[in-house]
């Protein structure tokens, strides 16, 4: 899902970087110093969760969980996921440097959208309802991410359109996996520690 350097047109790279910078700046406004430890440790938790591989038939996929990140972090998902992507690019060679903005936008914007769409479900106080919305958020975030990746590629040249569509359809199993897994994670967290979904939100 990471886009690499050299694949995108310059206006797309610059536009993505500008929008990502705006999102990160907005996200940091929701992070007074009291909340930075929580955001940092959760950012590390999502980094670790992305190492989990889920078998799909003979193959396996690694988790992205940006929907879950949105439910937990809200706007803070922008800086938190940016940090994760930066560390992945620098130390693991995943993704690239000039496309960091586009990649951040493709992962974090869906997280924020899911936060707004599903937050009422989290407030309901019922683990089953919360899990239902968690599942919807998990699937939606992956769908939006693949759509944004496809959009970035298509804007850079019509030749990518076929690849973009194939990427979208190839990710349908991933959407199902992320939806079910996010639902289970939300169900457990809502029963054990409902605060998880509110610690990092609210007026700063």
């Amino acid at each position: 899902m990471h886009i690499v350097d050299g694949a995108l047109a310059n206006p797309v790279v610059l536009g993505g970087a500008a929008l990502a910078a705006g999102g990160i700046a907005l996200g940091l406004r929701y992070l007074p110093l009291e909340r930075i430890p929580a955001a940092g440790v959760l950012s590390a938790a999502f980094f670790v969760a992305s190492l989990i591989h889920v078998p799909i038939g003979p193959s396996s996929v690694h988790l992205i969980l940006n929907g879950l990140a949105g439910l937990v972090l809200g706007w803070a998902a922008f800086p938190a996921l940016f940090v994760g992507l930066l560390l992945q690019a620098v130390f693991f060679g995943f993704g690239g440097l000039t496309v960091l903005g586009v990649n951040t936008l493709a992962i974090a914007l869906p997280a924020v959208i899911v936060h707004y769409l599903c937050r009422s479900g989290m407030r309901a106080g019922n683990p089953v309802i919360a899990a239902l919305w968690g599942g919807i958020g998990g699937a939606l975030a992956i769908a939006l991410t693949t759509a944004l990746v496809g959009l970035a590629l298509t804007l850079s040249g019509g030749a990518f359109f076929l690849a973009a569509r194939l990427v979208f359809f190839a990710h349908i199993p991933v959407m199902v996996v992320e939806a079910l897994l996010s639902a289970a994670a939300v169900y457990l967290a809502a029963r054990v520690k409902p605060d998880l979904f509110f610690t990092l939100k609210g007026a700063s």
Binding site: P37, A49, L63, L68
Partner: peptide, 24 residues
Amino acid sequence: SLRSLGYLVGMVLVRAVDRSERVL
């Protein structure tokens, strides 16, 4: 498997937040 791994992720997140409270 999906439910178990989901609970695992949920548990890692819960422990992360607990830990961050102690850190703070």
